[in-house]
Design a protein around this nucleic acid. Structure first.
Length: 511
RNA sequence: GCCCCCGUCGUCUAACGGUUAGGACACCAGACUUUCAAUCUGACAGCGAGAGUUCGACUCUCUCCGGGGGUACCA
């Protein structure tokens, strides 16, 4: 098949298993954000690079925060981005169901096994009681759980139950250091005693992430866990749980872990869901294309090689190795993201560029349909002519409407935008008069870019004595209403003689 | 308090003990030009600090400093 030649040695980083199984397992809370996408991307790329398996599961164990809307958005996000999965949501697989809300029986059974084996125990302490004990013992409030219920006798437990109390279930942490080799960070060691016994099932019977995540990873035979840095400090307790699960035959060992750095926002803060820059769909609305956004996100922590930062997903898959990812947090820089997106827009086949622009044009009312086949003949004609002019000068698809709107429109007057109006000097009226006069005699057959260029240059610059800026500025504003537009003479040709002249006359009349 | 992570231009990164520390974005200047953009050229700008190891450290070790995360019956 494919020979994987490793160009880099990954010093202390572990070797990957022969059959990589990674997963993406978001909680459906809120709208998809870019940090989440980056996590999905790196998992996907690792699976594709190694010809492994990418599993997609939903962790909806928190009924209070999860929503169906968010679930649907996450699905839509992955599909839009083209990050396809091999097993999981909607595609199925051998280890379903793939929504944790439908796997309650599994968790209950495993929790029972853990309890029976003594790896977990019933804990009746309330948060208030724990805090009170810590205070009384002179420990800081944030000391955490003190192990009070570890060795409750049967009598004590019965007495709690008789008071009407229901127990949470806690995992018993051994008093020893826990270490592992992170795929991104190398060796990480946690000191003994730094992780308290933790809850895996609520008193009401709801299983928590602390249980469901490792259990599902085990049952789905995930052997490489690539997740956010925020989960790093929960890794020792998961490793301990994996040991127990392996003893019980639920797991076949402990997976490899790789903790990806944060995506940062303004200041030194993690990009939060509140931050508009974190909103994937907002970026899409603004006109990011998947290639551009994915490329940019890949740059946050990973590099395809020296002196190179624009690449396709195929190229990324070919080169990607999670062990090359940097461990330090990266700031989300919208300017660079937009610049990368612009590069990808320019690489699009012109017709593809047009097709992808249509939803934006439709949204902005510049066009009558968002599908090429449903456009009018004139719309198709104008867009085909305008595409090569517009494609190199937009950075986001959301900018296309502004660029071609005045060409698509058949209005006889375009109200200049404020910054375009500012371009109009006192001479604008005289310039427009001259331009109209020079263009009126031009026959339809001669209404061509080069000819129009020659005629206007002659009339306005050579004979009129105006500097190019003063000569062509008013013409541009008249036909486009904007300071920035596609090339002027090409625009005039596309627009046609009649509309061009009327727009110039109408602007002239309103000066 | 305790535990853990991180530290190269403003930002994203390259460098794997030997380079004038490279590239990209942003910014500035210039060229081109019918505007804007694109393009081209140039400029600006960095190894957090200090020890140690070494013939030689951005690269290895330690300390400090700085930033971040965790310490939940959230994930």
């Amino acid at each position: 098949m494919v020979t994987m030649t490793d160009e880099h040695d990954h010093d202390s980083k572990p070797e990957l298993p022969a059959d990589v199984r990674v997963r993406f397992c978001p909680s459906p809370t809120g709208t998809p954000h870019v940090g989440m996408v980056r996590t999905a991307l790196f998992n996907w790329a690792e699976a594709r690079h190694t010809h492994g398996t990418f599993v997609f599961r939903i962790e909806d164990t928190d009924a209070a925060r999860d929503s169906e809307e968010s679930y649907n958005q996450i699905l839509e996000a992955l599909r839009w981005l083209g990050l396809d999965w091999d097993e999981g949501i909607e595609v199925g697989g051998p280890d379903g169901p793939y929504r944790q809300s439908q796997r309650g029986d599994i968790y209950r059974k495993v929790a029972r096994q853990l309890l029976d084996a003594g790896y977990a125990y019933e804990s009746y302490s309330t948060a208030e009681e724990i805090e009170a004990r810590n205070l009384a013992a002179g420990r800081p409030k944030s000391f955490g759980y003190d192990g009070y219920d570890r060795d409750l006798t049967e009598e004590e437990r019965r007495s709690f139950r008789d008071q009407g109390r229901r127990p949470a279930i806690r995992v018993r942490m051994p008093d020893e250091d826990v270490a592992f080799d992170d795929l991104i960070r190398g060796r990480i060691e946690f000191k003994a005693g730094s992780v308290p016994d933790y809850v895996i099932v609520r008193p009401n019977g709801d299983p928590l992430y602390t249980l469901t995540n490792p259990v599902d990873d085990a049952l789905m035979r995930i052997n490489v866990v690539l997740r956010g840095e925020d989960l790093l400090s929960s890794t020792p307790r998961q490793i301990v749980l994996y040991r127990y699960l392996t003893e019980l035959g639920v797991a076949q060992g402990t997976p490899l872990f790789g903790h990806m750095p944060y995506v940062m926002g303004q200041g030194n803060k993690k990009l939060s869901k509140r931050d508009p820059e974190s909103n994937l769909f907002l970026h899409r609305e603004n006109g990011f294309i998947r290639e551009g956004l994915l490329n940019y996100l890949a740059l946050l922590g990973w590099s395809i090689g020296p002196d190179r930062d624009v690449f396709s997903m195929d190229e990324m898959v070919e080169k990607f190795d999670i062990r090359d990812v940097k461990a330090n947090p990266a700031h989300f820089d919208i300017d660079k993201a937009v610049a990368i997106n612009a590069e990808h827009i320019r690489m699009l086949d012109p017709q593809d560029f047009l097709n992808r622009s249509l939803p934006y044009l439709k949204r902005d009312g510049a066009v009558t349909a968002d599908r090429w086949e449903e456009l009018t003949g004139r719309e198709r004609e104008v867009l085909t002519a305008a595409a090569p002019l517009v494609q190199p000068r937009v950075r986001l698809l959301g900018e296309v409407s502004g660029m071609v709107g005045s060409l698509l429109s058949q209005e006889d007057y375009i109200e200049p935008e404020p910054d375009a109006r500012k371009q109009l000097k006192e001479s604008a009226g005289a310039v427009l008069d001259l331009a109209v006069k020079a263009l009126e005699p031009v026959g339809e057959a001669d209404w061509k870019t080069d000819n129009l260029h020659a005629i206007l240059t002659h009339a306005l610059v050579e004979e009129g004595g105006y500097k190019p800026r003063l000569a062509f500025g008013p013409v541009r504003v008249a036909v486009s209403g904007r300071r920035v537009s596609p090339p002027l003479f090409e625009s005039l040709e596309i627009l046609g003689k009649e509309t061009t002249l009327r727009r110039m006359q109408n602007l002239r009349a309103r000066l």
